[in-house]
Simulated assay, not measured.
Amino acid sequence: MKKINEFCIKLLHWIEAIMAIILILAVGIECFHVIAQLPSFFSNEVPLSDVLSYVFNFIIAIEFVRMLLIHSMESVTEVLIFAIARSIIVGHPEAISLLFEILCIFLLLMARKHFLLQTDLEKENEEDQ
């Protein structure tokens, strides 16, 4: 039974790695589309919000790939922070939604500072001793 569990865990890691590669390829292909549209970005044919949307989508995709490969709570919180920030900047939310999104980012940053980073420091101290 232990060998089956180990095999399943290895299989899941391989599937995650394959999904990460697929996502990296998709981001690379999309980069070519953005580069092809650069003249229209600079000629003011495309609104700045569309450019910001593209950039945030790239950042979120890259952070998501990192989350798939690293498996840390810090990478998960970073993906969530970027996704919420994208919603704030690109989505033009109403006042109450904006308040909740800012509160979510604040809570994620506080959790990251007080919980995640302290546990990482504790792990480093344990390894040093």
Rank of each mutant, 00 (worst) to 15 (best):
N57D: 12
H114M: 08
H13V: 08
E30M: 09
L68E: 03
P47R: 14
F100N: 11
I89N: 10
C31W: 01
W14E: 01
S53T: 09
I24Q: 02
L38M: 14
T77F: 13
E127W: 02
A17Y: 03
I62T: 07
F115S: 08
L52M: 15
M1P: 00
H92F: 08
G28I: 12
A95T: 14
S40G: 01
L25R: 04
I59S: 09
V79L: 12
I29K: 08
Q37P: 00
E30N: 12
L108D: 09
A61C: 05
L69M: 11
K10S: 06
C31L: 15
E63A: 15
I96K: 07
A26N: 08
C31M: 13
V27I: 11
V34G: 01
L116N: 03
S40Q: 05
V79C: 10
N57T: 10
E78F: 13
A20Q: 03
S87I: 04
L23P: 02
A83I: 11
I102T: 08
F58L: 09
V51P: 09
L99V: 14
A85G: 10
V55N: 05
N125V: 06
M73E: 11
A26M: 10
L38K: 05
H71P: 00
E74C: 02
A111C: 09
R112G: 11
E16T: 01
C104M: 10
N57A: 10
I60Q: 06
F41G: 10
Y54V: 04
I89M: 13
I81R: 07
L107C: 14
D128R: 15
I59K: 04
F7Y: 03
V90D: 04
L117W: 03
K2T: 12
F100I: 15
A111V: 11
Q118T: 13
E122G: 00
I84W: 07
I24G: 06
L109F: 03
F100M: 14
S87M: 09
A36L: 13
L68N: 04
I96W: 06
A83S: 15
V65Q: 09
L25K: 07
L48F: 15
K113L: 12
E74R: 15
S87Y: 14
I4S: 05
S87F: 10
P39T: 05
V90I: 07
F42T: 14
V55H: 08
E6Y: 06
I88P: 11
A26I: 11
I96C: 07
Q37W: 03
I35K: 02
I89G: 08
S49P: 05
F58K: 04
M110Q: 04
I21D: 06
L11Y: 02
I81L: 10
Q118S: 11
S72R: 13
I59W: 04
